[in-house]
Simulated scan of single mutants.
Amino acid sequence: MSGLTSVTEGAALSHPRPELLAVTGLRGLAGLAVVASTVGVWRGAPGYLQDLVTAVAWAGVLFFFLLSAFVLTYNYPGLSYTSGRRVIGRYAGARAARIVPLYLVVGLVVLLLGRLNGGDWVRAVWTDQTRFVGALVLFYLAFPLLNRPLAFVFDRTVRRMPSLPWLAHPFLVRLGVIGYPLFLLQTLVLHGFGPVHAGTISNALLALCWIGLVVLTAEGAHRYVGVPARRAILDLARRTARL
């Protein structure tokens, strides 16, 4: 089974430490919760249920960032802005290779579709995703400053978590691996569908189909855009460093 830092997912080199598959599975649950909340609840649902769905979306995003922080803490032990230009450069290059290519490709698709649907359509589809990527960039920039306190929390929480094999289930791990394209593509895929309009079985099944479509689209974007672009960028950076 491969996770976030495996060569099969675009990493230039295999990672020397065993992967935290359960944490990746938790990332998958967070991403799935956000997508489900984007589909929404049926019209006429109690206000507390609609508020709960909104809260789940925000909590899912925050949880995704928290788990990402723990993964980075595990993969970059001791990283700080005093680690040297070469180490920081490798870290920055790896982060950029992960998020920039897919954001640019999906953004181009949104702009092309926006020519057919108008500027308001682009803003409706892409505003939250741009904010999410902006927050992700700020988080990556701040991580070297936060690494030590995060490591302190990591050692006292994640490392002491009881063994939960079901979190390392291949399906959840896969959702965690495609978490970034999942967040990036959900609004584009679901725009125009809107919330479920009635609490019927048929509409519930339709909502599940839309969630499945988001997952399949994210998998395709990750496999055919994200991974090849990440591998190409990291290989180019490695060859350039040897010159």
Rank of each mutant, 00 (worst) to 15 (best):
G3T: 10
G40N: 00
S6A: 11
R95E: 03
S68H: 02
A204V: 13
N117L: 13
Y48T: 12
Y74V: 00
R86E: 06
F193E: 10
L172H: 07
T82H: 15
G47A: 15
P18F: 01
A218E: 08
Y74S: 04
V35N: 08
F63Q: 12
A92W: 01
L112F: 01
L67Y: 10
G226S: 13
L32K: 06
L13D: 15
V7Y: 02
T24Y: 09
P18L: 10
A229G: 12
A33C: 14
F143P: 07
V196P: 04
A204L: 13
V125Y: 05
T217C: 15
T187G: 00
P77N: 06
L111I: 09
L52N: 08
F154E: 07
R85K: 11
R98H: 06
Y76M: 05
F70E: 00
P101H: 04
S80Y: 10
Q50L: 14
L185S: 01
I201L: 15
L66S: 10
A151E: 10
V122A: 02
Q129R: 04
V137M: 07
V125F: 05
S6C: 14
P16D: 09
L208M: 14
V41D: 10
R231Y: 14
T82G: 15
D155Y: 09
G10E: 00
L184S: 09
L208K: 01
W126P: 01
S68M: 06
V53Y: 13
G134L: 12
F132S: 02
T157D: 01
Y180N: 02
W42S: 15
G40D: 01
R238T: 04
L190P: 02
T24P: 12
A207P: 15
E9W: 09
V105P: 03
L141S: 05
R131N: 14
G3M: 11
W166D: 08
R17M: 12
S80P: 03
P170S: 02
W210F: 13
A229P: 06
F143E: 07
V137E: 06
L164P: 09
R156A: 00
P181H: 07
F70D: 00
F64I: 08
